[in-house]
């Protein structure tokens, strides 16, 4: 259980980066951290002590595998994370071009 809590800690660090950091890149890093933490948590959830990776090497071997589902899900999640990160970076890049800064406190044309 403790190990799960560590993941949550990582999650909270990521959130911390998002809320306190004013640099866009840091915010994106925060997201990356959150994604790692969730992926990791997923993977840890599917773990079974003493079990093997879910790859059948012989047709009639003993089926003592770790849970394959979280792995499949994490696979998807990683890709999604990659996609979001890429999009975010692209936006950040364009914002830098437009505003000449990464400081989120100065990027507030929209308000009210």
């Amino acid at each position: 259980m403790t190990i799960f809590v560590f993941c949550i800690a990582l999650f909270l660090i990521g959130l911390y980066a998002i809320v306190t950091k004013r640099n866009l890149i840091k915010i994106i890093i925060g997201f990356a951290l959150i994604e790692y933490s969730v992926n990791l948590l997923f993977a840890l959830i599917g773990f079974r002590r003493g079990a093997l990776a879910p790859i059948i090497t012989k047709v009639h071997s003993a089926h003592n595998f770790v849970d394959p589902i979280p792995q499949a899900l994490v696979l998807t999640a990683i890709v999604i994370a990659l996609g979001t990160t890429a999009v975010m970076l692209a936006i950040a890049l364009r914002i830098y071009e437009r505003y000449k800064t990464f400081d989120i406190a100065k990027i507030k044309k929209l308000k009210g």
């Binding site: 915010i27 406190a105 990027i107 044309k109 308000k111």
Partner: peptide, 11 residues
């Protein structure tokens, strides 16, 4: 006025 446009505020 509370909608300051600052992201951290919103978060």
């Amino acid at each position: 006025l509370l909608h300051t446009g600052e992201l951290y505020n919103y978060v």
